[in-house]
């Protein structure tokens, strides 16, 4: 089982509380293509929604990424392959992780770059969360 479904599930849960705010910030249809599986993140109105599969409408932004890189993106850990050494790079601060992933060619951005730079809250909302 890839990592993405669990992460999108968490994101979907978070939309219930953070959705309206994310919609206000992003106002767009974002598609994640994770290893060929598409996840449509509709943040255009209401509190947004996450659906698996290609959306019918044209996405404002499509992010193509591998499952492992998506996992690292969500966890804020996307550093170049560095051997374990004394200078372990700390997790990249937001929203640099997106740029970094883009520059390291781990993330393909198709569509609005400006929108892509606003996605950090989405990644945060997809991270595993502790349960009471």
């Amino acid at each position: 089982m890839p990592a993405a479904p669990a992460l999108f599930e968490q994101l979907e849960k978070n939309l219930k509380t953070e959705g309206p705010e994310l919609v206000k910030r992003i106002k767009g249809l974002v598609v994640f293509d994770v290893d060929g599986t598409q996840w449509a993140l509709d943040l255009r109105e209401g509190s947004g929604s996450v659906t698996k599969g290609k959306p019918e409408e044209k996405a404002d932004l499509t992010l193509t990424i591998s499952d492992a890189n998506f996992a690292q993106l969500v966890m804020g850990k996307l550093n170049p392959q560095q051997p374990a050494g004394p200078s372990r790079t700390p997790p990249c601060p937001a929203p640099l992780i997106l740029i970094k992933a883009f520059l390291l060619r781990k993330l393909k951005i198709n569509g609005s770059m400006g929108l892509a730079l606003k996605l950090q809250p989405i990644l945060d909302a997809a991270a595993p969360k502790a349960k009471l």
């Binding site: 479904p5 669990a6 595993p128």
Partner: peptide
């Protein structure tokens, strides 16, 4: 717990544990 399998993969991907990723694929 499917979501925990997903989290496991997430952590393995971040840790760069390729062998274990394969084991996770096989459950």
């Amino acid at each position: 717990a499917d979501h925990v399998w997903g989290y496991l993969r997430t952590s393995l991907a971040c840790a760069g544990q390729t062998d274990m990723l394969a084991a996770a694929d096989r459950r």
